[in-house]
């Protein structure tokens, strides 16, 4: 595997990934043959057929869009509050002392425990789902951005000051980029958490989206369609994480790739 040429290395990686996926599908098929009950575990190909069927009929696209909208909406709400708040807290010690007990208290409450109160407050549908996805994304983004706000090096601040930077330039051109690697990590984790939370929220508090679709198909014992929903969640989650990595590499922290 220690090939000198990076192209060959890349090809090798794809080869291994493909082998892993094949192995997974093989084990799945064997297990479904052994179990012999399509309600408990349908074969991969019937899941694929279900996938094509739902795509043709159009409901899958609708569910995907509903879930994506909730995740991205909640994620944007969470980021736009968590990042500035965390940075402010890392710069102003009194604010930090004031708010950190509240954060420590709220953080261990899992998003799922918020669902009942979210339904009481917002009813059923989009609003409670936005609330849950935002909540799930908030803490990872907040905790990492806070650490990032403390990551600035004294030399950089001294150097910038001696080069004539005022408070505003110091914030925008020194503190913010110093914090960016950690903020970016927080965004990646937050998006993942938000995506997991949307399914939970839709299982209970919505009437559209992938979570709702899974729940509805469970009730009618359409296990292969349940699995279609699950596989779609996995695929989209992986794609979002790849997209965010690309955003990191090209926009958020390009200097970290050197």
């Amino acid at each position: 595997m220690a090939t000198a040429n990076s192209g060959a290395k890349g090809a090798g990686r794809w080869g291994w990934a493909l082998a892993g996926i094949t192995l997974f599908l093989l084990l799945w098929t064997l297990a479904s043959i052994r179990i012999g009950n399509a309600v408990l575990l349908p074969k991969p190909h019937s899941v694929l057929l279900g996938f094509v069927e739902l795509l043709r009929e159009g409901s899958l696209v609708g569910d995907v869009l509903a879930s994506l909208r909730r995740v991205i909406g909640g994620f944007l709400i969470a980021s736009s509050i968590a990042v500035p708040l965390a940075l402010l807290m890392s710069f102003f010690r009194p604010l930090n002392l004031l708010l950190s007990p509240i954060v420590s208290f709220l953080r261990p409450i899992p998003p799922i425990a918020w669902i009942p109160i979210a339904i009481l407050w917002f009813g059923i549908g989009d609003p409670p789902s936005y609330f849950i996805t935002a909540l799930a994304a908030f803490f990872p983004i907040f905790i990492n951005s806070f650490a990032g706000g403390n990551a600035v090096r004294a030399e950089h601040v001294h150097a910038a000051r001696s080069l004539g930077a005022g408070p505003r330039a110091l914030f925008a051109r020194i503190y913010l980029p110093s914090a960016m690697p950690m903020i970016s990590t927080g965004l990646r984790i937050g998006l993942g958490q938000s995506w997991m939370a949307v399914v939970t929220a839709e299982l209970i508090a919505a009437q559209s989206g992938l979570g709702y679709m899974i729940q509805a198909n469970r009730l009618s014992l359409e296990t292969s369609l349940v699995l279609v929903g699950m596989c779609t969640i996995g695929l989209l989650g992986a794609l979002m994480s790849v997209a965010l990595e690309a955003l990191e590499r090209h926009v958020l922290i390009p200097w970290k790739q050197a």
Partner: peptide, 30 residues
């Protein structure tokens, strides 16, 4: 700290998020 005194530190004081050119242009720009 003020621009009357330029400072060269022992190491790791360049801004890693700016290109070499942007690092040098930072002072004149500020």
């Amino acid at each position: 700290t003020n621009p009357d005194c330029g400072i060269v530190f022992q190491n790791h004081s360049l801004f890693p998020w700016m290109s070499v050119l942007e690092n040098v242009a930072f002072g004149p720009k500020m």
